[in-house]
Structures are given as C-alpha cells and as structure tokens.
Design a protein around this nucleic acid. Structure first.
Lengths: 227, 227
DNA sequence: CGTGCGATTGACTATGTTCAACCGAGGTGG
DNA sequence: CCACCTCGGTTGAACATAGTCAATCGCACG
C-alpha cells in the first residue's frame, strides 16, 4: 500500500444529517483572537468542541520548556472528546477570529442516551479523531526532516482542501500556522523545517507564494520523500 | 505540571459494570501464536477487539520497508474501533497464546442504539484509545533516545502494572516485546535502544533481569530524562 | 516609515544511524 | 546428548543528519 493512501483519512461517511446536526441545538459559539486560549491543560472537561472556522493548536509544554503540539484543529474537527475529567492538553486559537462551537458534555451525553442517531454521530466523530491521531503518529514516525515535512504538507493539503478553504484551482493551500508551529508539530527545529521547505522548493516539488501559501507541484515527489 | 502525570492515563472510571460487560455476550475469543496476524492492513473492519491476555502490536510497513509500530495492545485494551470500513493498520500477536475477544461491529452498534449504557461504555473505551494515542504522541515527540526510552518504560510500567501482571512487589515489569519492537515503536534503531537501556542501567535508574524484565529504581531519574 | 517577529541561511556541534563484529540462549537435528 | 545454527541483544567505530548558535533578511503591523 502506498504511503499517500495511508496518510489519507477515511472518507467522511454520508449521513442523512450532517455530523453535529443534532448536537448543534446545544452549541455555544465563541470567537477567539490569535493565540488566545480556548481551554488550558488540567481544565475540567465540561464541553466538547468543534472548530467552525479558523484553526487551533492542541499542545502541552514539557518540563524542559519545549512546546509539543499534539495536533492542529481545522474547520470541521471535533476535539476534547477524550477526557472524562480534565483536559490533558491546552488548546489555543492560531488565527485571528477563529470560531469554535462548544457543546455541554453532560447534556450531550444525556441526549445521546435517548437518541441513537446522535450516539452514532458521536462515535463517528470520535473515530475520526482516532484516525487523525493515528496518521499523526505515522507522520511523527517518519525519519528524516524531508519525509516529515512532506507528509505534513500532504496532510494539510488533504485536510484543508476537503474543508471549505475554497482553494480556487491552482492557488495551493494556505497554511494557517507559523514555521514554529510546524516545527513543534513535527518535533524538528524551525531551522530544519525551513531548510526542508527550501529544499523541496528547489527540487520543484512545491511552490511557495509568500511564506504561508504552498502549491504542491509533484505529489509523487513528496510521497517518495522517505528518509 | 510534571511530565510523569502527562504520561499517566486517566484513571479508569468506576462503572457499575466493567467495561465490556454488556458487550461480552457478543464476544468470540481466539488464541494466537507468536507473530500471528489478528487482522491485516486494508482488511474490512467487521469487528471490534479487546486483548484478554498476552500482547499485540499494531503496525504498518512503509514504502521504504521500515516497520512503524503504531501502538502496543495490552490486556484490557480495546482496538479497531476507529475504522468505519477497513482497518488502517495490521495487528499481530506478540507473545505465544495471546487471547483476543472479537465483537461483531454491526451487532454491537445495533445493541448500542437500544442500550444507552452500552453506548456510554463504547464512548469510554474509545476515549481511552484516544488518550493512549495522545500520550503516545507525547512520547514520540520527545527528543533524545534517553527521554524516549525512559518515557516508554514509564508507560509500560503504568499500563502493565494496572492490569493483571500480578507483579509481585519488587519484581519489576516483564516487557512482552523485543528490542526491535521497541525500536520500531520509538522510531529509533535497535542499537540506540540497547545503548539507552544500558545507560539507564549504569546510572542506576533501572535494573535489568535477563533481557525482558525491568525494575524501575528511580522514577525521578527516568522522568527527568529530557533531551 | 520604523520596529519587531517570523523566516532563512551558514558554520559548527551533538546525537543517532549504519556497518560490523561478537555474545549468549534456545531449539533442532545428527 | 551435544554440536551447531539462528535470532535477539549488545558493543564499537565511522558516518550522516538534525540541532544549536548566530547573523541577516523581509514582511507585516503599528
């Protein structure tokens, strides 16, 4: 099996209602500024969340001060479903004006008890979170900075373009996060991320417009960036 | 917050019934030999599974031939809940005589529709899988072989001793997996894993009895193995 | 228009991988 | 029953790759 398909998530299953449809009656949406925290580590887990627009990072800070980004949360992603008591990680908005919907956990669970359809919905989004984390582990598991950065770009292209993004044809994708975020996501130094990107650019695999917009030219070249 | 608590899972919540209690009526248990496959990559996801005894590895083989172990599955762990259609990874038994319970997915889901308690159970075990994967990402995210191997040992001590294991007092833990498995789990070479272990042994942080039995002497020393 | 942060590039260093040899326990077959 | 073979594990030396330190660039925002 080819790596590209490993990194590709399950196609979202068609529902009679969209995921979150039933839940949406409970939703409280909030707007966050750049870098603003949505919840902190060890915060009581009173809600489930879903990114409506913008982007967020889930992370933890190690004892040595290094920040480890556990995953990026993009429009459509649910998060915070894992915790029973307190959130294990903090979540911050990445871009200005990120909109997040919050669902009171207890009420959602109670609703799910009475409504099997909602129960299935929750299992679906939870399964999606598991799939996301597993592909994440695959990316982290790659050795070599080129492979990691390539896999990261493919993941983002996949996740961003399947969402709204409205990426008009050949404009590529617009990364919502900084090089530092990417570095903390891939467990690399910023310098290495930067070098990997210039390397990919120089060999014609990608094109960079400004610093945040990336157009993938040769998918194969990225997928083959093992080691 | 100290790293040790980050790597520690949520304490298993008390249930009136044990997790899997309702499910157990559907269970089919099977016995597997050392290295025997439980399911392959791309196999239709017709069942959920739970490890009863023994141990298993979930993994994928990259294009370059490297084997990446996504996670280890120990007694009590549910797995295979993520997939809606096909399993993204293969699973193999690690030790001779591993017992695995299989639950037909469709029937379990149907049962969950009618039984809210089962629905909550499923959400609980799924949340546990998410927590496991997230701590996994933290371990992978550590830089430096000492930190990774230390975190691995702490994770195993935690997961194994909370299960049956019957680790009589000072006997330490019995690792079910080989050095090669550990290497593919941590994305290190076997040699580096071996060196890290001898290093930890020499500085008195752990004691090795034979090659598989590990006794952790100084938890602090392991936890502080940053970098 | 200036300031500051994010990004890039370079030189040196540290850390892990690779290649290779060796060891030891367990299992098999003569 | 013992020799041998294989596989898992450890150790050593040379090499490769990413991290660190440092300087510079440039874009965005005030």
């Amino acid at each position: 099996m080819h790596v590209s398909s490993q990194l590709r998530h399950d196609q979202p299953t068609r529902h009679r209602h969209n995921p979150g449809d039933v839940l949406s009656s409970l939703a409280m949406t909030t707007r966050y500024g750049r870098g603003q925290e949505i919840y902190t580590q060890d915060h009581p887990a009173e809600h489930w969340y879903r990114v409506v627009s913008g982007a967020a990072r889930r992370f933890t800070v190690q004892v040595n001060g290094r920040r480890q980004i556990v995953d990026f949360l993009l429009p459509g992603d649910f998060f915070g479903l894992a915790s029973r008591n307190v959130h294990l990680f903090a979540v911050e908005a990445i871009v200005e004006g990120t909109i997040v919907a919050a669902y009171p956990r207890e009420r959602a669970e109670a609703l799910a008890d009475a409504n099997p359809h909602l129960g299935r919905e929750i299992r679906t989004v939870t399964a999606a979170e598991i799939a996301r984390l597993q592909t994440r582990i695959l990316i982290l598991g790659r050795i070599g900075s080129l492979g990691k950065v390539s896999a990261f770009l493919l993941e983002m292209a996949e996740r961003l373009s399947s969402r709204t993004q409205a990426s008009k044809a050949g404009e590529g994708i617009l990364l919502p996060m900084s090089r530092y975020d990417i570095a903390d996501y891939l467990t690399l130094s910023v310098e290495t991320v930067s070098r990997a990107l210039t390397s990919l650019k120089q060999r014609g695999a990608i094109r960079l417009v400004g610093t945040r917009r990336v157009k993938i030219i040769h998918y194969d070249a990225l997928e083959d960036s093992d080691e």
